[in-house]
Nucleic acid binder design. Structure first.
Length: 280
DNA sequence: CCTGAAACCTGTCTGC
DNA sequence: TGCAGACAGGTTTCAG
């Protein structure tokens, strides 16, 4: 699920609630059940279980791909990684069950309302932190791509400061916080820039085009409630607007040439070799 | 500094 | 039907 638009969609849903589910805001956590130890990055399980109780969820925000829950004293940070999901379901058991009610539940936070927050994560890559110093975990992140302080001049100078392949650089969360494999491929296609170009070879105009394309794709993704592919379905619609992602061999929507797939930084990378040339 | 590979996991799909 | 292999929205760590 989880690039910036998918995380944003999940958090908006938790804040707003819906017809069958209440908002998570202002609910109080009364206890926790941890079903997969490695899901908890810090602190130790016993300390986590004692510190998490009697905490009100005062605010919910996002930083990059991190979910940030503002509690009374501490911050609960959750990263969904490849297959994580968060949703409310009714509390059906004692506070310290050893086994989850559903397969793949890794953490359950019991709430005073009779509901609970489920951290569901098939592949077990997701991580949870409870900390009083969120900057110790979020401090390394780069700018938010939608931050208005990021203008084309700043983006150009950031690109100039590195000599790295664009695809892995844009996915590096220390460079920009929030892009993943889908939105990076779509943005590079939209800006007509080859994913293997080195960052310091872009012109100022190309840098401006790329920044605009990144924002256009992220905003489209948010508008569409994210992308829903494979068996991990959340009701998003952005997958119906993919131009190149997972379109290997299909005709390019601009020129009709088949879309290429290659591997860069161990990740599938989709692009049009004619619209996104290495050299002009 | 930069790139690539391996590791962490489970599930789905394809091809023989 | 079974089974091996490739692949999946991410990040960390290590080798060269």
């Amino acid at each position: 699920m989880p690039e910036l638009p998918e995380v944003e969609t999940i958090l908006r849903g938790l804040r707003q609630g819906n017809q069958s589910t209440p908002s998570l805001l202002n609910q109080t956590i009364v206890g926790a059940s941890l079903f997969w130890q490695k899901t908890l990055a810090e602190p130790e399980p016993a300390i986590f279980l004692s510190k998490i109780a009697n905490n009100k969820i005062n605010n919910i925000s996002r930083r990059g791909k991190f979910c940030v829950f503002h509690l009374n004293h501490d911050f609960l940070l959750i990263h969904l990684r490849m297959s994580g999901d968060l949703y409310l379901r009714p509390d059906m058991g004692p506070s310290y069950d050893l086994k989850p009610k559903q397969a793949h539940e890794r953490l359950y936070l019991h709430l005073d309302s009779g509901w609970g927050l489920v951290f569901y994560d098939t592949r077990k890559f997701g991580r949870v932190w409870l900390t009083s110093k969120p900057e110790s975990i979020l401090g390394q992140l780069g700018l938010e791509p939608l931050d208005p302080h990021l203008d084309s001049d700043l983006f150009y100078s950031l690109l100039q400061s590195k000599s790295r392949q664009l695809k892995p650089l844009l996915m590096d969360q220390r460079f920009l916080a929030g892009l993943g494999n889908i939105y990076t491929d779509e943005a590079l296609f939209d800006a007509r820039i080859n994913p293997l170009r080195l960052s310091n070879t872009l012109s100022p105009d190309e840098a401006a085009d790329l920044l605009n394309a990144i924002r256009k794709m992220l905003l489209s993704g948010i508008r569409d409630h994210g992308a829903s592919i494979d068996w991990v379905y959340r009701g998003g619609n952005f997958q119906n607007h993919f131009q190149v992602y997972q379109k290997t061999g299909s005709p390019c929507p601009r020129c009709g040439n088949p879309i290429n797939r290659t591997v860069v930084g161990q990740r599938s990378t989709h692009y049009c070799p004619l619209c996104q040339p290495m050299h002009k």
